[in-house]
Amino acid sequence: NMVHPNVICDGCNGPVVGTRYKCSVCPDYDLCSVCEGKGLHRGHTKLAFPSP
């Protein structure tokens, strides 16, 4: 899995490795796959980016 450079997960404050989930509503909100799997930020649609 690749690390998305200059992207920090807003759920756990860790690096985003593998798929990046970017909120389509909020201007700067990203989740890693673990936090997305936990259902964080469920109210907004997210775009999935498998690689940087």
Rank of each mutant, 00 (worst) to 15 (best):
N1H: 05
N1R: 04
N1F: 03
H4T: 13
H4R: 09
H4S: 14
H4C: 13
H4P: 12
P5S: 05
P5V: 08
P5A: 04
V7F: 03
I8H: 10
I8R: 13
I8Y: 14
I8D: 12
C9M: 00
C9A: 01
C9D: 00
C9E: 01
D10Q: 15
D10A: 15
D10R: 15
D10H: 15
D10M: 13
D10P: 05
G11Q: 13
G11C: 08
C12R: 00
C12V: 00
C12A: 01
C12F: 00
N13L: 07
N13W: 05
N13D: 04
G14V: 12
G14T: 08
G14Y: 05
P15S: 09
P15A: 14
V17N: 14
V17L: 11
G18M: 04
G18R: 04
G18N: 05
T19K: 12
T19C: 11
T19L: 07
T19M: 10
R20C: 11
R20E: 03
R20G: 14
Y21S: 03
Y21D: 02
Y21W: 08
K22R: 10
K22Q: 11
C23S: 03
C23V: 02
S24W: 03
S24H: 08
V25N: 12
V25A: 05
V25F: 07
C26H: 03
C26K: 02
C26Q: 02
P27T: 13
P27L: 07
D28F: 11
D28V: 05
D28E: 13
D28P: 01
Y29T: 03
Y29R: 04
D30M: 11
D30K: 14
L31N: 06
L31D: 01
L31P: 01
L31K: 01
C32R: 00
C32K: 02
S33H: 11
S33M: 08
S33E: 12
S33Q: 13
S33T: 12
S33R: 07
C35H: 00
C35R: 01
C35I: 00
E36C: 05
E36T: 04
E36L: 06
G37Y: 10
G37T: 13
K38N: 11
K38L: 05
G39Q: 13
G39S: 10
L40V: 09
L40P: 04
H41V: 02
H41T: 03
H41Y: 00
H41F: 03
R42N: 14
R42M: 13
R42A: 14
G43L: 11
G43N: 13
G43A: 15
G43V: 14
H44R: 02
H44K: 01
H44W: 01
H44Y: 01
H44S: 02
T45R: 13
T45Y: 06
T45E: 13
K46I: 14
K46C: 13
K46A: 07
L47V: 14
L47K: 14
A48D: 13
A48Q: 12
A48G: 09
F49A: 10
P50F: 09
P50H: 11
P50G: 08
S51F: 06
S51C: 14
S51W: 05
P52H: 05
P52Q: 07
